[in-house]
Every structure is written in C-alpha cells, then in structure tokens.
C-alpha cells in the first residue's frame, strides 16, 4: 500500500510538469497580452509593466522563474487584479466552488444510489421503468438549460428561493440541484447496472441459502460490490462537477473559482489561468488516487499494483 502510494505520487510530478509546460507554451503562442485594453497605454508604462512581471525576459528564463515559484507554493501575482496574488484569489474563491461541488456530489449520491438499487430490485417493472426514465431525462437536460428554467419557475414564479448570490442555505439549493441532477442520473444508472450484476453472483445465492433476511443480503452483502461502479465514477464525476460549476456559477452569480478561471482565460491573465488549471489538475489527480485506494478497501479481491 505505502509503496503504491509513493509510486503514484511520484508519477504525478512529471504529469504536473507537462501540464505547466503545455499551458505556458500555449500562453506564449497566444496573440494579445494581459495589458491590452481599449485605451492603449503609453509605451514607457507598458514597458515598465512588462518588466515588473518579467514578461520582457527570454521565455526559458520566465518559465524557470515561474517553475521555481510554483514549487515553493507561490503561483505568482495576478496580472489583472493587480493588487492581489493568485494564491489569495484561490484561497477566497476555491472554498465556494468546493462547497457547491461537495453538496452537489452528495445530492447526486444520496438520490442516485437508492434510485438505482430500487430500479434493479424491481428489474423491468414499472418502478424501474419510471426511475430510469427520469434518469434518462436528467442526462438529456444540460445544466445551463436546467438552471435558468429553475430560476424562472422556483425563484421568479413561486418566489421560494433566491435566484442567485452566495452565503445562505437557500442560495445553495438551486445551484446544487442544477449541478447535481445529471450526476444523480448517471449514478442511478451505474448503481442499477452494478446491482443487477451482483445479485446474479454465487455469494448472494449462498447468503440467501443460509437464510439471511433479504434486507441484509441486499443492504450488507450485495450493496458493497454494487456501488463499485459508482465509486469509479467519482473521479470523472468530480472533474465534470468542477467543469459544470463554471457554468452554474455564471448562471447563479456565485463568486467561485470557475468564474475567475473563465475570466482570466479571456483577459489573458496568464498566471491566474495557469494557477487554476494546475490546481484543478492536482485536485483531480488526488481524487483519482483516493478512489483507487477506496476501491481496494471495499473490494478485497482488488490488489493495488
């Protein structure tokens, strides 16, 4: 286990390096710069700005300097929000995005797993058909359609919940539903398929044969393996929630990291954009690692190699 963890962590170092290098090269190739605005700056000021952020140095030197700072945990100053560093902005915006994402993911699990299992236990029955119909519907409605429709209906129509902003429980609910709906649908389908596969296996027949109650057979023995497909979906699900939150934050006016990321890409705020990509990649790699470990913990037949 320990050697597995060490090897995996070591293998992420070249990966993160490639990510940094890739985004850095892309940024160098891109036309335009962070100080382009509608009102052009006097050349001396522009030169001073370039010099302040070392943009006038050779590319290799810039990359080396940036890399050195990143290794020490410093993502540099933001080129657009000039009084603030990328670290400060992330420290402020990331918790918002993470809270929203975690709530959405929790909702997806809490709705999806029971729905999937209920469907599998009533295989091809009316309940199964209904649940899977709703799940298919969930997969086909993109979040940027669901979000505005929820606002129109719930916020403006009934006046039950606020249409945007961040801070209160009521403000979290609609964005979390918007973000979690499609994930709940996927989880339901995966849990159903997993359960259908597991209940056919011999060890379940054994459990029934020795007279265990159905609730114990399903809830204790079958569930454990049936949720494995859901578990391996957690990595991709987190990735898609991070991506999806970009849109949801925009719709509901939430000051999360997604908004900063898109704006920084559009404004050529290179350090901010690269810092965000690096952070997202790191998060995702860590989560995939955790999922792999959990997989081995839940399913004793799996060995980490």
């Amino acid at each position: 286990m320990t050697s597995f963890l060490i090897r995996r962590l070591l293998s992420t170092i070249p990966l993160l390096f490639v990510i940094l290098l890739g985004s850095f090269v892309l940024m160098q190739k891109a036309p335009g710069g962070p100080f382009d605005s509608e009102r052009s700056l006097p050349p001396e000021i522009e030169a001073n700005l370039q010099a302040k952020y070392h943009l006038d140095e050779p590319v290799i030197q810039q990359f080396g300097r940036y890399l050195g700072n990143v290794v020490q945990g410093d993502l540099g100053p933001s080129l657009k929000y000039q009084a603030r560093s990328v670290n400060e902005i992330i420290a402020q915006a990331l918790p918002v995005s993470l809270t929203l994402g975690a709530i959405a993911l929790f909702m997806a699990m809490a709705l999806g797993i029971p729905a999937g299992i209920l469907g599998a236990l009533n295989h091809n029955g009316p309940k199964d058909f209904l649940l899977m119909g709703v799940a298919l519907l969930g997969i086909c409605i993109p979040n940027f359609v669901l979000g505005p429709l929820l606002i129109i209906l719930v916020s403006f129509g009934f006046g039950w919940l606020p249409a945007g902003g961040w801070g209160t429980l009521g403000q979290v609910l609609l964005p979390a539903i918007t973000l979690g709906a499609i994930r709940a649908a996927y989880v339901a389908r995966l849990a159903r398929a997993g359960m259908l596969e597991v209940v056919k296996q011999d060890y379940i027949r054994t459990a029934r044969a020795k007279g265990l109650r159905e609730r114990v057979v399903i809830g204790k023995h079958a569930l454990r393996l049936a949720i494995l497909p859901v578990l391996s979906y957690l990595g991709p699900a987190t990735a898609s929630i991070l991506v999806g939150s970009v849109v949801v934050e925009k719709i509901f006016n939430i000051p999360g990291l997604g908004t900063f990321f898109v704006n920084s890409a559009l404004n050529r705020d290179y350090t901010m954009a690269m810092g965000t990509v690096l952070l997202y990649s790191g998060l995702l790699i860590t989560l995939n690692l955790i999922v792999d470990v959990l997989y081995a913990v839940i399913d004793p037949r799996v060995e980490l190699s």
């Binding site: 990595g235 970009v246 890409a265 965000t276 990509v277 997202y280 995702l284």
Partner: peptide
C-alpha cells in the same frame, strides 16, 4: 491513463480563449 486524469475541458477553454 495520464490524459484521463486531466481536466481536459479546462485546456479547451484555455485553447479557445487564447488562440481565438
């Protein structure tokens, strides 16, 4: 495997935003 663990859409956003 390595590419699987990357948040690809973010690169696409960068790519499209930077390169036009």
């Amino acid at each position: 495997d390595m590419l699987y663990s990357l948040p690809f859409m973010f690169f696409v956003i960068l790519l499209v935003a930077f390169l036009g």
